[in-house]
Amino acid sequence: MAARVTGADLGALHRRLVEGDPTASEEAARLLLEPLTSVTQRAFPRLDAQVIADAVVDALLEYFVGPERAQERGVEHIQAYLQRAAWRNAANQYRGSKRRKFREQNWLQQSDVPDVEVSSPLGTLIEEEDAQAQSAKEASLMSLLPDDSDRLILRLRLAGERSTEAFARALGVDNLTIHEQRKLVKQAKDRIDKFLRRHGSKTK
């Protein structure tokens, strides 16, 4: 049975997260993982336990990276905010798995080979399709950008980099204050997005 999380515990941890305490995230994870998982599992009883666990973790990790977003409706609503985020992730996962199932079903119906023989090539086919689509997208985006540092920023974004610090280093502005770094990084990202939109593509 999950231990009950009090508003005071959560409020204190939230303040530490906002202040940038690097250990607050692991304490909050230990405190919140079990209760959030059990509530989400009850809301989506047919979803796989692993999908639920990932949905909850992703909601928590997003919160740890940007705790300010959770306090818009007051610190006392943080648990409800996290619960909604976990439910949204679980619902997205569910929709995504339905789309994939539909795609697989289509492929199987078009194939004359028995299911057992087909399952392995099908998995490979899906993986290859995903990988090809990703590298084609990366290559076309890179070739669109005329500026070296913009290409570097884009490459970092496509690799999943999220920290301002890494982007600031790439731009060569890591010696500035964090506020100025954020501003310049945002400007660079906006410039790239605008450029790519104008040329008929986008980073996400």
Binding site: A29, L33, V57, D58, L60, L61, V65, R162
Partner: peptide, 17 residues
């Protein structure tokens, strides 16, 4: 909770933050 924590740690390892 230990299993959930392990899963969370694995997912955190995919994020540079």
């Amino acid at each position: 909770n230990q299993a959930l924590l392990l899963n969370a740690a694995e997912r955190a390892a995919q994020r540079p933050e």
